[in-house]
Design a protein around this nucleic acid. Structure first.
Lengths: 200, 200
DNA sequence: CCAAAAATTGACCAATTGGTTAAATTAAAT
DNA sequence: ATTTAATTTAACCAATTGGTCAATTTTTGG
């Protein structure tokens, strides 16, 4: 048998390198040679562990996003008061974004260019949260609008400063500290904003 | 001299074809041969009119996004009551998105991968609107938060359903008519939401 | 220690890529 | 009508790309 530790190590190095390169350059822009260099290994070894560029990308993508969506699912199931639940979701979302600012555009791009991957994502989390929103609206605790309007609002409010970062920093000539402060204050701001929006 | 009409026609065909392909496949994913085919011309003719892939992409990108941002600048200068101005911006933004749903992710991707193009964008529009927000906050007409929080909220609320469309339709198994209805109702929803958020 | 299995590599390949060029066609000018 | 300039094309090119393979090194199990 093979040395599992070393094998795992190499696989891990590839995983990290590929993640970095795919996130930075996108699928079409990524180069297998660049990934190999980044991992400090031979290009042929990439194909030895993961058969093709597509398979490598697909595996990384699915693992990363399923991890995120399963976190959402757990949150939605927790026994909490409604706004507490919303707050927890927002916190979790913001935390994830602070660590992976590229996730939203990555997700959108991938769904657009590799629609076959959608089916491999386990989206219970989003569905459960939508269910919660619908039942709250029926109870009259929040405004009566299609739950998608609310869902996209929460996500949009959380995501936008991350998406807009490079553009906003340039347009308004901001420095990193200033923008980081905006990002840090975003969570509390979104929580207040959502409360204001949802008030019946 | 050359026949200007025919020349313009060819250039226009290239322009349209390239716009379509770049929007669909992204810069890295786009192929000059595909653009040539789409335009119904020889690939060498692409390089005759636009010297390189980069130049072709840059010109199209700058023209399209400057047109949008200059619209914003005009709106910001109009003599209107504050919320009327906000509403007009939202309307203009939604209208643009309905016709060009790919613009947000295109903008973000381009800024990330071709940062040198930012400098060629004329962003007065955004700056003026930020100024308006700041002065309204000082007057106490709206909540006192960093104007970027508001700006990103307006944009995020408008954009999100367009960005999320392919994913949302799949997760929740929605049909096109249903989703179109959500998009059509988005403008009024965002206007109400922003009013609720901004109330001091 | 040794043979089998697994991991790793360098050299290579066919296909694709953006881009060029010289020749052919078409339009303009005199 | 003929020269000149602009447009268009087919063929070509060098570089890059994802991917393969035979050979070598390392690890493992007996």
């Amino acid at each position: 048998m093979v040395n599992k530790e070393i094998a795992l190590d190499t696989e891990e190095k590839i995983w990290k390198a590929a993640t970095k390169v795919f996130e930075r350059d996108g699928y079409a822009g990524a180069r297998m040679q660049v990934i190999a260099d980044e991992a400090g290994i031979n290009k042929a070894l990439l194909h030895y562990y993961f058969r093709s560029k597509e398979k490598l990308f697909g595996k990384i993508f699915i693992e990363k996003y399923n991890k995120f969506f399963s976190t959402l699912a757990i949150l939605a199931d927790q026994d909490m008061e409604f706004f507490e639940k919303i707050d927890t979701v927002i916190d979790s979302y913001m935390e994830m974004l602070l660590e992976n600012p590229e996730m939203p555009s990555m997700l959108i791009n991938t769904i657009t260019h590799h629609p076959e991957l959608i089916d491999k994502l386990n989206m219970e989390g989003a569905q459960k949260i939508r269910g919660v929103l619908q039942s709250e609206a029926e109870k009259g605790n929040i405004i009566a609008v299609e739950s998608l309007q609310i869902l996209t609002s929460v996500v949009g409010l959380c995501i936008m400063p991350f998406l807009a970062k490079p553009i906003a920093m340039h347009i308004f000539k901001l420095d990193m500290e200033f923008y980081q402060e905006v990002l840090n204050k975003r969570g509390p701001f979104v929580k207040k904003a959502i409360r204001a929006i949802l008030k019946p």
